[in-house]
Write a protein that binds this DNA or RNA. Structure first.
Length: 506
RNA sequence: GGAGCGUUGGUCAAGGGGUUAAGACGCAUCCCUUUCACGGAUGAAUCACGGGUUCGAUUCCCGUACGCUCUACCA
């Protein structure tokens, strides 16, 4: 086991948007694989035909691509253990189910869904288990002849695991240590459905075996069914071949408790999916981190810190650093509440850390949306550099810098009207002439001229700065006002002064 | 109801028998900045509760409470 090549897998069910928690599971898989020079595999668990959603699979790969967590083997790029889509592996599973029946670890069950529904209604807390299976219609209660007859006339059936009585199944979890289960308390899970498809329980162990998975990461919600999987491993392939389990803590909603859901995001106004997801049935789009203006670096970083840290207090990690420093021992046992404010802080940090050229293309669409045409990349970089520390997410660049590209739509004259007077009016009128004659157009000289003029007019620069800012920006925000003037240029600066001057006279 | 898992500030969390119980986010106040932001400073936790063990428990043990997950021919 130790010298086997590490192989891990992410096994999503393509039923809709890719949840935060799913991406974190991918991330931990990926980090572990890369750290051990192993392989990261994506296997599509589409055994429930009733839950097929058009486009959901492609969407998952788009998300992984965006995050930079690309698998070595998957349905899209193939691999030595293809196919990687369980629906295309349907024939494989049945033989294993049959093998279990032969060995007495599983049995045919002919109870219809309606009959089971009735039992559940009639008997409180009904479970199909070692006690109740005697009252059900299955190959344990029917004579061999009757079973054969039902089988030969195509009576629908499922195959269930026959949970042993009074056995202890031990799960050695890499995060939680030893967890024990009493098999008498487990029920006889369906392994093979009436449509011939396996359930998750069968498929996961068969495929993990066939694909030679060495370490299996999954959400904590799977822990209660671990005994089923471990038993299956024991019956089918031997415990020595079983991957090592790691059940990851859940990501919880920010208010109250419980798993974070898509609904919580909608309710509280933040994304839960990695990327925008449009439900083909309803046409409704659920917003994603990407479209909200998150950098994948920040998104991945934030996810890694939800349930893991390296103990040093460092919080900003590149993917490469995460690969180097990741360790299962330092994964938390308890769930973590998702904090959108902190998520934005991560993004802000990455916006400062990365060169603006590296993500300028990602902010362009937001300018386009606001009908601002970016024609000069160098100018865009300069502006981004000036405003980036005020931006948490990509769309903030538009709000923080639109005035660099077009005249402000609104001038907040109310903020200066109270202290406006003839002296100021005259100062700015004269400033226009000074600016027209300025030989060197940079922030330093602009500021010098401005202050000299203020002194000549016996006005305090402080009284003039805010009006000047309002003229250029339209509001009380933005970088240093002389940087703005220097950047937008002589013509625009003068034009904006004139414009506000007119407004103030009116 | 049953089983399993979990529980350090509002949130993420470090620490793990003796500490002034780190740090980050957020919040509040202040400084810097003639805007906003950045940066800096300061403030806020009897480590869920109750028993043990111990000279000493937030740290070890046992209970209790609370929360969560699962309990489908869904994953």
């Amino acid at each position: 086991m130790e010298n086997k090549k590490v192989r891990v897998r992410f096994a999503p069910s393509p039923t809709g948007g890719l949840h935060l928690g799913g991406v974190r599971t991918v991330l931990f898989n990926y980090l572990f694989a890369k750290q051990h020079k192993g392989s990261f595999i994506v296997r599509i668990e589409d055994t429930d035909q009733t839950r097929f959603v058009e486009g959901a699979e492609q969407y998952i790969f788009d998300c992984l691509q965006w995050c930079g967590l690309v698998p070595e083997e998957s349905p899209v790029n193939g691999g030595p253990f293809a196919p990687y889509r369980q629906s295309e592996r349907k024939e494989i599973y049945k033989q294993y189910a049959l093998k279990l029946v032969e060995k007495g670890h599983a049995y045919y069950a002919f109870d219809t869904p309606a009959e089971l529904e009735e039992k559940r209604k009639a008997i409180p807390n009904f479970q199909y288990n070692h006690q109740t299976r005697r009252q059900c219609t299955n190959s344990l209660t029917l004579s061999p002849e009757a079973v054969l007859e039902k089988l030969s006339n195509n009576t629908p059936y499922v195959i269930r695991i026959k949970m042993p009585e009074h056995e202890t199944v031990t799960c050695h979890d890499m995060i939680r240590g030893t967890v024990e289960f009493n098999t008498s308390l487990c029920d006889d899970k369906v392994l093979l459905k009436a449509d011939g498809m396996p359930t998750y329980h069968l498929a996961v162990v068969v495929d993990d075996y066939l694909m030679q998975i060495t370490h299996a990461f999954r959400g904590e919600e799977w822990l209660p069914s671990a005994p089923v999987h471990i038993l299956l491993w024991n019956y089918l392939f031997g415990l020595n071949k079983m991957p090592q389990w790691a059940h990851l803590p859940l990501i919880l909603k920010p208010d109250g408790n419980g798993k974070l859901s898509k609904r919580d995001g909608e309710r509280l106004g933040f994304p839960v999916f990695a990327m925008d997801w449009t439900d083909p049935a309803t046409g409704n789009t659920t917003t994603g981190f990407k479209e909200r203006g998150f950098l994948p670096e920040a998104f991945v970083n934030m996810l890694a810190m939800l349930g893991w840290n390296d103990g040093s207090g460092q919080e900003i990690f590149s993917l490469q650093e995460l690969i180097e420093k990741f360790s299962i021992e330092r994964i938390h046992k308890g769930g973590a509440k998702f904090d959108y404010e902190k998520a934005k802080w991560f993004n802000h940090s990455w916006l400062q850390k990365l060169p603006v050229q590296q993500y300028a293309d990602k902010v362009k669409p937001y300018f386009e949306n606001a009908s601002i045409n970016i024609t000069n990349d160098a100018y865009l970089y300069k502006v981004m550099e000036l405003v980036k520390e005020r931006c948490q997410v990509l769309p903030d660049f538009v709000a923080q810098s639109s005035f660099f590209f077009q005249h402000p739509e609104q001038i907040d004259t109310a903020s200066i009207a109270g202290k406006w007077n003839a002296a100021k009016q005259q100062f700015f009128a004269e400033l226009i002439r000074t600016l027209e004659l300025a030989t060197i157009w940079d922030a330093e000289n602009l500021e010098k001229d401005f202050k000299e003029m203020a002194a000549a007019h016996q006005l305090k620069p402080g009284e003039l700065m805010l009006p000047f800012r309002i003229m250029l920006v339209g509001g009380k925000f933005g970088p240093h006002v002389f940087d703005i003037a220097a950047t937008i240029g002589r013509e625009a600066t003068i034009h904006r002064i004139k414009h506000t001057l007119q407004l103030m006279q009116a």
